[in-house]
Design a protein around this nucleic acid. Structure first.
Length: 581
RNA sequence: GGUCUGUUAGCUCAGCUGGAUAGAGUACUUGCCUCCGAAGCAAGGGGUCACAGGUUCGAAUCCUGUACAGACCGCCA
């Protein structure tokens, strides 16, 4: 149930009636007609722009259309009054009963209140994290993981059938580098002096792996050439790294539905098939790329390569799928991977990339567009950098030196809930400052506590009510006399609850889970405000000891707020709490 | 040189399909615990929405250009 779409349906119905009666010309599109909460509550409870957006196409004055709309709309029994304001807005006042009954709706639907029909069971694949299996997840991956997981949760809530997927880059040369680095640690475990040169991973996290390898194979790999051990160590190390990454994700509360291995594309003809499918569309050719402007020409040697004509699908330059030595580029298995996603029949694809992969957006979209003949949309969300601060000083991290701030470091220090919420109180495409001191020492100012506190207060009231002998079980609240919720301050909260389904649709349409976080903050703020008004106006206190019926109605409202907070936090992957500790 | 992001209050940021007098937090000033948990609430000051054009009934929002910041730009992934 969505009150705003209900009233919008009423407005559209009225417009259609007007068309039938000749008050409006045939063939008008009502797609731009909105019904939304007005920015200023003094303007009423709902506002529609119908008269204004239709004035021009209808060739009539806004106020004339508005006048006619008013006379029809005001006969609906849900509507108290309709006013024409400003240049032609219609401000609607809704009968209190409609608002009050929303509380009942929330309580009976529970978490399902706000779930939406917009997804309509469409299948969507959300690919996120997809970090190389060469080390632990760092703080940048953390943001991608949090964002992707919240987005998946949001789409799930909005009615999509969501697959959460991790693309494991276990096929490229970086896993050879990993294997060589582990080999060095293995030699080290045997007491040898080793040097980590450029092109190896010097991080400490590989030390236990070298030790474990020694325990496993003894001295079998000593004094042996790479061809003897590389493949086996690669296998062994990749698996170990993925185990570590899964553990990291679990700390954050992220669990994937699917891990797709890049390696599985090799040797099966999958890459060849994907490239052939592009070739069949005339999009593969042999050619020489031009020197990118701004690059030094000394470093540049023209080479003939196998190229994908991505410029036919909106890219700026064509992209190589094969290196001049005949091996695949990184892009080729990516094309095959996305061909696989297309073939799996998803209605919608979403990739979450770090900002450093921004250069791949156009070519991936081009590839999916070509592979699916433009039928399957691919949305790519970039998460910008996380800038870490401690004591006001920026934290520098260097993956090469192996001293980077890991997901584990962050979650150990501040906890999964705070990490997630803080990272979601920012748009994905803007950089994020993450200050350890702020999220820890000044935790009172942390929005996650603010929202959880509202939820905890809601449960606190219920405990108090139960102690006072008032029945507050969910069935009783569900039949409470909600007409007692007539105070403006209470209606403010109900109107906020009414916005929830609409917010979900907006957030899901734009793939922007941060909107959920901001909404929850506002809803929590409304509840805190109402709570404190009880200090000055005893009639607004939730607990009216001598009046169980009124208490039940008020507590039903509080419970409805808790339901929505809980649902919202659930989308974001943050735990609602019933008590603050 | 090119591509992609971003630029809104002193600071950190929201701002929906273009809509009414641009909103929060923080900081500052001042109130509120005999009262459901003060991890809270209320009030006040604080703005050339980077800049310049354009589109229209209407622009922080769309378009063009400029400035500044960040990420990326064949034979790494």
């Amino acid at each position: 149930m969505n009150l705003f779409s209900d009233i919008r349906a009423l407005v559209i119905g009225t417009l259609e009636m007007m068309t039938k009666e000749g008050d409006l010309p045939d063939g008008l599109s009502f797609g731009n007609v909105t019904v939304e909460p007005p920015r200023d509550p003094l303007h009423g409870e709902m506002a529609t722009n119908a008269a204004m957006v239709l004035a021009k196409p209808a060739g009539q004055k806004p106020r004339d259309i508005a006048q006619k709309l008013v006379s029809i709309l005001s006969t609906d029994d849900r509507i108290i009054s309709v006013d024409i304001a400003g240049p032609g807005f219609l401000n609607l006042c809704i009968v209190p009963h409609v608002w009050q009954s929303l509380v009942k709706e929330v309580l009976s639907s529970g978490r399902a209140y706000g779930t939406s029909a917009m997804g309509a069971g469409q299948t969507v694949n959300v690919e996120y994290v997809s970090a190389n299996p060469t080390g632990p997840l760092h703080v940048g991956h953390t943001r991608g993981a949090v964002f992707g997981d919240a987005l998946a949760g949001l789409l799930d809530y909005a009615g999509y059938d969501v697959t959460r997927e991790y693309y494991v880059n276990d096929g490229g040369s970086q896993v050879d580098v990993l294997a060589r680095s582990v080999y060095l640690r293995y030699l080290e475990a045997h007491g040898q002096e080793v040097a980590f040169e450029d092109g190896t991973y010097p991080g400490d996290y590989l030390i236990p792996l070298g030790q474990a390898l020694k325990n496993k194979v003894g001295d079998a790999y000593l004094d042996q050439g790479e061809q003897f051990w590389l493949a086996e160590i690669r296998e062994y190390a990749t698996e170990a790294m993925m185990g570590m990454i899964r553990d990291d994700l679990a700390m954050l509360g992220v669990s994937m539905d699917s891990f797709f291995s890049e390696k599985s594309l090799y040797g099966t003809g999958a890459i060849e098939a994907a490239i052939d499918s592009l070739r069949a569309k005339g999009l593969i050719y042999e050619g020489v790329l031009e020197l990118p402007k701004g690059k030094k020409s000394e470093d540049w040697e023209p080479r003939e390569q196998t190229l994908f004509k991505s410029t036919d699908h909106g890219d700026d330059v064509d992209r190589p799928v094969m290196k001049s030595d005949g091996s695949w580029t990184y892009f080729a298995p990516d094309v095959a991977y996305h061909a696989d996603k297309v073939n799996r029949g998803y209605d919608l694809l979403i990739n979450v990339f770090g900002a450093d992969h921004g250069g791949y957006v156009k070519r991936m979209k081009a590839a999916v567009s070509a592979l699916s003949r433009g039928k399957i949309p691919l949305d790519i969300k970039l998460t910008q950098l996380v800038r870490l601060f401690k004591d006001g000083e920026p934290f520098k991290m260097s993956k090469r030196a192996g001293n980077f701030v890991t997901l584990r470091d962050v979650v150990d220090q501040v906890g999964a809930d705070v990490t997630r919420f803080v990272m979601l109180t920012r748009k994905n495409d803007a950089p994020l400052d993450f200050d350890f001191n702020k999220v820890l020492e000044q935790s009172r100012e942390n929005p996650v506590y603010y929202v959880q506190y509202a939820h905890a207060r809601g449960y606190s009231v219920q405990r108090r009510a139960a102690e006072a002998g008032i029945n507050v079980d969910i069935a009783t609240l569900g039949v409470a006399d909600l007409s007692r919720l007539s105070h403006e301050a209470e209606l403010v909260v109900i109107r906020r609850l009414a916005e929830w389904p609409r917010l979900i649709e907006i957030a899901a349409r734009t793939n922007e889970p941060h909107r959920v976080a901001f909404y929850l903050y506002e809803l929590a703020s409304d509840l805190h405000a109402l709570w404190n008004k009880g200090n000055e106006e005893p009639a607004l206190r939730f607990l009216q000891e001598d009046d169980p019926d009124t208490s039940q109605a008020k507590i039903a409202l509080v419970q409805a707020v808790c339901v929505v907070i809980s649902a919202g936090l659930g989308i974001l992957g943050v735990k609602p709490v019933e008590e603050m500790r």
